[in-house]
């Protein structure tokens, strides 16, 4: 299972890497808000198409990567709407599924175009409490080390068991081992930072100014969607 690298790697290599996080937050966040606000049909479908177009054509995210991250979310949604099919019927289940598709598309667009350090830097500039941003950055830094440790422990377990399934006890001991090593890694990191005279971790990300054109285009697109939804309210009731 991939946890840390892929989405962030895609975000680091996307064509929108140098674009300000504010641009991407306004586009992705605005569409996400509209997906939650407007009726699922037809607006969630329109929002899904816009998000996919922005990701594939604008940010030049590879289609395979887009589908690879969207597919599991849709599989979850499909399994999830089953009780709604049984309880409230197909129309309601389809509505929840389509709205979920739009929400997942917007979130994936944001995640695939905005690396986490950029978002944290934007959060700090937006006066999100410093202690929260600093803690988030430390967690982000440690997740990479913990995941690497996890992979090493899993490989060791696989080799010891020659590919067999580990017992519950062995898996739990590995998990305990992972936690103790994670705490040791944190202590080493803290000692290293302290020896270098660092209080906390510096957030290093290039400062990108928001593009007025991009922001205007994003807001205009969202207003057009909202106006269309209001005008067609009698046909597609809220």
């Amino acid at each position: 299972m991939h946890v840390h690298a892929p989405l962030d790697h895609i975000a680091f290599s996307s064509a929108w890497r140098s674009r300000s996080p504010v641009d991407k937050l306004v586009l992705g966040g605005g569409l996400l808000l509209l997906a939650s606000l407007l009726p699922a049909l037809p607006w969630s479908i329109a929002i899904s198409i816009i998000a996919a177009t922005a990701a594939l054509a604008g940010a030049r995210i590879p289609l395979r990567a887009w589908l690879r991250f969207l597919a599991p979310q849709l599989a979850f949604l499909s399994a999830a709407v089953l009780p709604i099919v049984l309880g409230e019927g197909w129309p309601r289940a389809a509505s929840v599924w389509i709205r979920g598709l739009a929400g997942a598309s917007c979130m994936t667009l944001l995640a695939m175009t905005t690396p986490v350090p950029d978002l944290l830097l934007a959060a700090r500039r937006a006066h999100v409490p410093g202690v929260l941003v600093e803690m988030a950055f430390l967690v982000y830094r440690l997740i990479a080390s913990i995941w690497e440790l996890f992979e090493r422990l899993r490989l060791g377990l696989d080799l010891r068991l020659r590919g067999g399934k580990p017992s519950w006890h062995a898996a739990t001991l590995s998990a305990g081992n992972l936690l103790t090593r994670s705490l040791q890694t944190a202590r080493r990191l803290e000692r290293g930072a302290s020896l270098r005279g660092l209080d906390g971790f510096p957030l290093l990300a290039p400062r990108c100014e928001p593009s007025r054109l991009f922001l205007v285009a994003s807001v205009a697109l969202q207003l057009v969607l909202l106006a269309a939804a209001i005008m067609l309210r009698s046909r597609y009731p809220w």
Partner: peptide
């Protein structure tokens, strides 16, 4: 640092 390791 330890809290961050716990969260990770």
């Amino acid at each position: 640092y330890l809290l961050a390791a716990s969260a990770g």
